[in-house]
Design a protein around this nucleic acid. Structure first.
Length: 670
RNA sequence: GCUGCUGUAGCUCAGUGGUAGAGCGCGUCAUUGGUAAUGACGAGGCCGGGAGUUCAAUUCUCCCUAGCAGCACCA
């Protein structure tokens, strides 16, 4: 007599099933609709194949496409397998390696056979077509347990050297599994090593819900020393509608691209001769100046004192700070000599001492701190600088304003006693909060904990991590609302750090603000203060920034607002546009009043139709267009057309001025 | 830095082994038009840089450089 298994379902009911039965059998027993919809199972909380037999009594929850997170994960993983199968079907001899689900899709790293070039964009349509065939064939996905040795032998026999290498490294004794697409060992079936779980068959995928996006190079195991593979990226969803929504989001991101908007709005440009450094145009620099004034007010109000330190310092200084040893490959160095310019020069002797452009402001701030004698009564000392730094970034890393080689930070260093660390950190949390709120950003705070490679004792790390954690708790921000999370291994080598991640209008996140407590640099540069006991003590140094860098923050603002930055930041806040040239004088009067009120405005007196002017200034993202015609002149009014609105509002000039003045006022001054 | 792709007018892009084209923008003229492109005419290019192949290179080959995508990097 066979034993019956007790399978408990989420509604609390219990079904008795014969031994050897599977979640699919349970689904079938409940009803044909569910049997069709079920794509996987959660058995005792673990996501599993729906066709995998129970091993005993179990709690079961059937997974359908309504369980979107699980369903997407499964579908993407399966798309990746189908992708690999398709590539091997088209080009036998292709080696497969690894293919996981990603945030919005999947990829698979493959190595083209020796007799053909790496796969390119032009191969994608054929691969997509083959993938659709595999999906439509509705091949069952069958799980099979293998021994490690058998698997290694199989991969070697198939010429799959990467897979063989990988299988050999999997822990011995663990049951290894493979999945077949099609019946095991049958002609036309395809196999991959995989932990699973998978959908019951390829036909559960929607052949219209994926798209191969691009190919890129990737290294075997992410290591440059290893073979270069071709990574084929796809985006995958549960249905065509979701796919289309995703493609539209990508389009939206492309529309917001700050490099494109920067050119269209004439904010800045980049060029070959200074790659990685920004040429700010008058319009773009107006945004910068407004941000800088804003941040100065914030920092002044927070008890910071602004300084300015040298751009170039002798290498000896960088040696002492540790940058020469740890960071030199990212530093621009220059010989400390006048080059010989005879015969085509410049020629350098190679014997001069080195100097370097500063990649960070911190050593210079310690130097300023060390001038004179500091008493504990003076602490905390908060030194701020709009510090212009140069970092010789890898060329492939450069990206518009987001990653540059010359940038200016809203930097500051707080020198304080051990006892003041938590309080200073808490204050910083509040300052950062007020800034991000002024821009309307939502953000999350993360604590990056000790990395494997680090300076200092575990006791120091325990303490430093606890201080930052407590400071955020005291600020009431270590909560779900603030996305509080601790990230093991992500800290700097000398200290843990708090990170502020902004979420932009289309859901992307950007790390901007940070605070790090540092006990290493004060030590290396021998910073001290005189304590209550009359002896020398070591201050703690807090490195902190809120914007991060002006360049990057402006890039984020452009993308977040799609160029339509708030009026107080807009380079041109209003344009006066007369309809006919008879009104030019009145337009001039209006402009004069705007300028007197401190509004950044101009008048468009060109011999163009009003349609043309509206279109042009709208494209330039000017927030307010003040249209004036005969009627407005007679009545002393303006017709305001606001960016993004179709209708205009006619109002008396004084009223318009009051409105614009209000909108043009920075949020901290309102 | 690695791999792939790209570099033609201010911008977006066509094109060709016999030194080039469009649209927008710009200039001139006409037009004075009520809320997202008025019309005509005109100017504007060392076809990223260097080398090679060729009678001839913007076009083919190689090297360099920058950009783009991804990877690696981002203390």
């Amino acid at each position: 007599m066979t034993e019956l298994l007790k399978i408990s379902l989420p509604d609390g009911s219990v079904r008795e099933m014969p031994e050897g039965s599977t979640p699919a059998d349970v689904a079938a027993a409940i009803g044909p609709g569910l049997a069709k919809a079920a794509i996987a199972a959660k058995v005792d909380g673990e996501l599993r194949d729906i066709g995998r037999p129970f091993e005993g009594d179990a709690e079961l929850a059937l997974v359908t496409n309504r369980d979107e997170d699980e369903a997407l994960e499964l579908a993407r993983h399966d798309f990746a397998h189908v992708l690999a199968e398709a590539v091997q079907a088209l080009w036998p001899g292709t080696q497969i390696t690894f293919g996981p689900a990603t945030e919005d899709g999947f990829y698979y790293d493959v190595m083209a056979p020796a007799d053909r070039a790496p796969f390119g964009m032009e191969d994608l349509p054929a691969i997509e077509e083959k993938m659709r065939e595999i999906i439509k064939a509705d091949k069952p996905l069958c799980r099979e347990a293998w021994s490690r040795q058998a698997l290694i032998d199989k991969w070697k026999a198939d010429g799959e050297s990467f897979k063989a290498e990988w299988a050999a490294e999997l822990p011995e004794g663990e049951e290894l599994t493979v999945y077949w697409s099609g019946a095991p060992n049958e002609e036309g079936s395809w196999m991959d090593m995989c932990r699973g779980p998978h959908l019951p068959s390829t036909g559960k995928l929607d052949p219209q819900a994926f798209k191969l996006m691009r190919v890129a190079g990737a290294y075997w195991r992410g290591d440059q020393a290893n073979a270069q593979l071709t990574r084929i990226y796809g985006t995958g969803w549960l249905n065509k509608k979701q796919l289309n929504q995703h493609l539209m989001r990508l389009e939206e991101a492309a529309k917001r691209d700050h490099r494109k908007l920067g050119r269209e709005m004439d904010l800045f440009h980049l060029q070959e001769e200074a790659h990685g450094s920004v040429f700010w145009h008058p319009q773009g620099y107006k945004i910068w100046r407004e941000l800088e004034s804003y941040m100065r007010r914030k920092m002044d109000g927070g008890g910071y004192r602004e300084i300015k330190t040298p751009q170039v310092m002798d290498a000896r200084q960088w040696e002492q700070s540790g940058h020469w040893g740890k960071y030199r490959e990212n530093m621009f160095v220059i010989p400390d000599e006048v080059p010989n310019t005879e015969d085509e020069g410049p020629v350098i002797s190679g014997e001069a001492d080195w100097m370097a452009l500063k990649p960070m402001n911190c050593p210079a701030h310690v130097i300023v701190f060390k001038q004179g004698i500091t008493s504990y009564r003076d602490l905390p000392i908060r030194l701020g600088e709009m510090g212009c730094c140069h970092r010789n970034e890898p060329h492939g890393a450069l990206h518009g304003l987001m990653r540059v080689r010359q940038f200016t930070q809203d930097d500051a260093h707080i020198f304080c006693t051990e006892d003041q660390v938590v309080e200073e950190t808490r204050k910083f949390c509040e300052l950062a909060d007020s800034v991000y709120k002024d821009f309307g950003f939502k953000y999350e705070i993360k604590l990056a904990l000790r990395p494997e490679q680090r300076f200092g004792s575990d006791a120091d790390w325990d303490k430093a991590e606890e201080e930052l954690r407590n400071a955020v708790k005291e600020a009431g921000m270590a909560t779900e609302e603030f996305g509080w999370e601790e990230l093991p291994g992500e800290g700097a080598f000398y200290a843990p750090k708090l990170e502020w991640h902004l979420t932009d209008a289309i859901g992307r996140t950007w790390q901007v603000g940070t605070i790090q407590s540092d006990r290493v640099l004060p030590e290396r540069l021998d910073a001290t203060y005189i304590g209550e006991d009359g002896g020398k003590h070591r201050p703690v140094m807090l490195h902190r920034a809120i914007f991060g860098s002006y360049e990057r923050f402006i890039g984020i603002l452009i993308e977040h607002f799609a160029g339509k930055v708030p009026v107080w930041l807009a380079p041109t806040q209003a344009v006066v546009a007369p309809i006919v040239s008879d009104i030019d004088d009145y337009a001039g009067e209006v402009l004069a009043k705007l300028e007197a009120a401190g509004i950044r405005a101009s008048a468009d007196l060109r011999n163009e139709k009003i349609n043309y002017k509206v279109r042009e200034h709208s494209l330039k993202k000017v927030p307010h267009l003040l249209v004036v015609g005969k009627r407005e002149q007679e009545e002393g009014t303006v017709a305001i057309r606001t960016l993004g609105e179709k209708d205009q509002r006619v109002m008396p000039l004084d009223e318009a001025l009051a409105m614009l003045t209000e909108e043009a006022t920075a949020p901290d001054l309102r």
